[in-house]
Design a protein around this nucleic acid. Structure first.
Lengths: 231, 231
DNA sequence: CGCAAAATTGACTGTACTCAATCGGAGTGG
DNA sequence: CCACTCCGATTGAGTACAGTCAATTTTGCG
């Protein structure tokens, strides 16, 4: 894992944090947070932290995509969430991680020391407000993921996944899957085969079209919507 | 829904909030929060808020049990979480609720106006810290629920549910299910029959014993643990 | 071009859902 | 006290769907 100092940060993070109040007050909470962490580069496939690790650090995605996941005793892995630019992950109440994290693509992350941020939050109300926002964003994501997992029918899950991906990113009908079929399967708690079969079926039914495996055009979003919600 | 003023609160909540800084500073954040809300009583089965409602309010459970849930187009209902004493629910980033809430048992709740609490959080760092704790608690709950839903096998889900219930409440081997089979099923995304079959199987295998339908004794928690995690 | 990994397709099997019948317990009234 | 009812829970039989294993096909990369 390559480590470099955060852009513009020439002193250790604690010094940066302690100096915060003396700087110009016009900086946004996000800027404050950015300045208080280390920038790290993580190549695709690399582990960021593992289940059981200490929770002294948490992270913000600067670029790329991260998956938080758990390896189950039966060999399967379950992906709990995907995180992209601007999202924070690695929040945990416990002292040890309940869940691991790995880079789905090459990533640039900002790593924070929890104690530093908590100190900042005490000093600056906007920081704690921002933290709450991040936590609630994660909460909303986890809840909709749970609803996705609760849905019966492989096709339904896959349809809901495609629509969620669309809503989350470009919002255009052409979506870019930055993840593999296996990762979709691990997110939806399905087998790769089931994901593949669903997509093939959608293709045959004219609901989607795809040139690459990674590029999918939603031809009939309404039909997918209907499939995702009812029937 | 019966409404009564919060204990010790003789003026409208906004006045209470505004007066906070003038009071003695020794009150804990929880006490502050308790004083800023209305106490409401909700009978078993009653709806607290519905999907689509405004999110100006959120709630803390004083006594009883609440379920947040979503009604699906196929007629099923999916329970997202159960909340008991001391837990907060009804956090939402959106202006309208993505999910409903109803009383599983007779409940005493404290209802807060979001804008009031946000104001309090600006004044008092301990309040915003407390809010973050509540949000992270909900996040952890949602994540472990997602993992539960992702697990294959009805028996595995039910075993994991029983253990989670034990861990969450008495931590003794005799657990009291305050919820019906149907509610367990709706939480685990299973049919009532599947839940019933799993419990019967556990009974036959000597893993559990029950006098009432609501009172279950875990005879071999290790065996259930093994079932919940591996195999 | 050629290899390795990813993705798709097919055949078979197991499991959970559905529908339906039965059981059990709590509450009511004769 | 017992019969009756209602509702939740359990059990059973048949079916549909997703998992598994295995064989191809396609893709991406050196």
């Amino acid at each position: 894992m390559m480590i470099q100092l955060a852009t513009g940060a020439t002193s250790p993070p604690s010094a940066i944090v302690l100096g915060l109040q003396e700087r110009r007050a016009s900086r946004t909470p996000k800027e404050l947070l950015n300045a208080a962490g280390f920038v790290i580069q993580v190549p695709k496939g690399e582990e960021i932290f593992a289940e059981g690790d200490s929770t002294v650090m948490f992270y913000k995605v600067s670029s790329g995509m991260v998956a938080t996941c758990k390896f189950l005793n039966d060999g399967r892995r379950q992906i709990a969430a995907f995180h992209t630019s601007g999202e924070v992950f690695g929040f945990d109440l416990e002292a040890n991680r309940q869940i691991g994290a790995e880079a789905v693509t090459d990533c640039t992350l900002i790593r924070y020391r929890r104690s530093n941020i908590e100190f900042m939050a005490q000093q600056d109300q906007s920081v704690s407000h921002q933290l709450l926002q991040y936590a609630m964003q994660n909460l909303a994501q986890a809840q909709s993921h749970a609803l996705l997992l609760a849905g019966h029918g492989a096709a339904r899950k896959v349809a809901a996944f495609l629509l969620a991906w669309k809503a989350r990113f470009n919002r255009q009908n052409v979506i870019y899957l930055t993840i593999s079929r296996q990762e979709i399967a691990d997110y939806l708690a399905l087998s790769v085969e089931a994901v593949s079969r669903s997509l093939s079926q959608f293709d045959r039914d004219g609901l989607i079209a795809s040139r690459n495996k990674r590029e999918v055009c939603l031809l009939k979003p309404e039909a997918l919507e209907k499939m995702a919600t009812s029937q």
